[in-house]
Design a protein around this nucleic acid. Structure first.
Lengths: 190, 190
DNA sequence: GTCTATATTGTGATAGAC
DNA sequence: GTCTATCACAATATAGAC
């Protein structure tokens, strides 16, 4: 593997599992077996490496979600499949939560590009859910309310499964999302 | 105000708004107008100051919740009042989220006392909600499912209002919690 | 208890040889 | 492009005067 990829892989592991602020350049170059000069050749600063990490984290996450949803054609099933992805993601990542939320919490500067990119990622996810939901509910206000509720449930599932190191929040979020979609989808034929 | 309180007040402000890892001892003593020796007289290490911060954050939060709920006697109204508290807390704190979740994300060591205390805080909140919910639903399994769902909604509201710097997640969480309680509370008289 | 001064280690970043 | 060596500065923590 080439130098840049070794740096990125090590940075991803350390930024995510050890924390962005708690991880120094020295540790990254040591574990990636790269000289300090080489790192600064590819990334002019730690912040720029952070930007690359955030960009990659977002892209990989959406890639994973889209692959998971590919298996379904029904929008309701697609919407519920996000919780299956959440469970897989959590298991692979030892219940360490969302890369974007984690770094957003660590970088408190609102004007920092890391913050901007993380918020944009979440906004993109909300819109992704809304697009799926409008295929089920034609009323756009109702669709937005339902898609954002599913968004809240998904996010809570991620954060709380990290806190408790357990998948119960994901299961419960999925159950609630299922009920919400079932309640609203078919009008009561009385 | 005495030295210890000045340290605690400054530490609270900086740990919460600037971040625990991003805040150094030097900045705390400078802004609190205290000498380094004085800080280390009261707190033997930064970690111990962190423990005190977490303990105080948890106590203040529960105090705020309990004061908010005092106004109501009906358990359903009490449960919904947590979202009114959330809104007040968010507004006072400039949508900076939960002190416990934030520091939990920054301190990645699972064995650290800060982590343990933050998880215990969340567990205590879950039990608090469960106790209120059992007053409405006698079936304990159903009560747990409903109380944990409200817990998830509350947590998502806090985290997402921090991300978007907006109260819409709190309003939406409250609306969903209202529906869940209404749907289950009164059996359909057909 | 509070202060000044200092010790020690680690940080992000740079210069220049190869 | 990658390396070694080194910079200036900030981190946590300690020693000892008052």
């Amino acid at each position: 593997m080439d130098t840049k990829n070794r740096i990125m892989e090590t940075a991803d592991k350390l930024f995510y599992f050890q924390g962005y602020q708690s991880t120094g350049i020295n540790q990254i170059i040591a574990e990636a077996n790269v000289a300090k000069g080489s790192l600064y050749n590819h990334f002019p600063s730690k912040r720029e490496l952070g930007h690359a990490y955030v960009k990659q984290s977002s892209e990989e996450w959406f890639k994973g979600i889209e692959e998971e949803l590919e298996a379904y054609s029904d929008p309701t099933q697609k919407l519920l499949a996000i919780f299956s992805f959440s469970e897989k993601y959590a298991q692979i990542n030892h219940f360490n939560g969302c890369r974007l939320i984690n770094i957003l919490t660590e970088v408190t500067d609102q004007d920092d590009q890391i913050t901007t990119m993380a918020v944009a990622h979440k906004q993109k996810f909300r819109e992704f859910l809304y697009q799926l939901t409008t295929k089920i509910f034609t009323n756009s206000a109702q669709a937005l309310e339902i898609s954002d509720t599913i968004y809240l449930l998904y996010e809570a599932a991620t954060v709380e499964s990290k806190i408790f190191k357990n998948k119960w929040p994901i299961e419960l979020a999925r159950k609630n999302a299922t009920q919400i979609l079932a309640q609203n989808q078919i009008p009561n034929n009385k």
